[in-house]
């Protein structure tokens, strides 16, 4: 499963988040993120995310924190509106280094 979404290109690991990115998907997402946490640069692709919950956002935050501890860099290849809204609701937009919310 991990190989399908995580891709490595020139030292940059990309992890794509699934459309249904809720608690049921988090064990799988965790496996991919664990594989990426030692990388020097990780790009998260949240463009496909349609449903997202606290479990997902908590995991992303803890991942960002762990990556930073190792000196890795986090970037976003984009985030869906659903992802941005949920992050904002929990007060995690800044911490997650999400791109600022675009006015609708």
């Amino acid at each position: 499963m991990g190989g399908r979404r995580a891709t490595k290109q020139g030292g940059m690991v990309t992890v794509s988040l699934p459309a249904d990115c809720r608690i049921g998907a988090q064990v799988a997402v965790h496996a991919e993120l664990v594989a990426a946490v030692q990388a020097s640069a990780v790009a998260l692709d949240g463009t496909r995310v349609e449903r997202v919950d606290t479990a997902a956002l908590q995991q992303l935050w803890l991942f960002a924190r762990a990556l930073e501890k190792h000196g890795g860099a986090l970037t976003w290849k984009g985030a869906s509106q659903a992802l941005e809204e949920a992050a904002a609701t929990l007060g995690l937009t800044t911490i997650l280094q999400l791109p600022a919310q675009q006015p609708a």
């Binding site: 608690i23 997402v29 993120l33 479990a55 995991q59 929990l90 007060g91």
Partner: peptide, 23 residues
């Protein structure tokens, strides 16, 4: 949201995280 924080119980290692638990 004034503040969001993690509790002490959160695992130190990301690999040790159970993503279905809330911290």
């Amino acid at each position: 949201v004034l503040r969001v924080f993690t509790v002490d119980a959160v695992p130190d290692e990301f690999a040790a995280l159970d993503p279905t638990q809330c911290y």
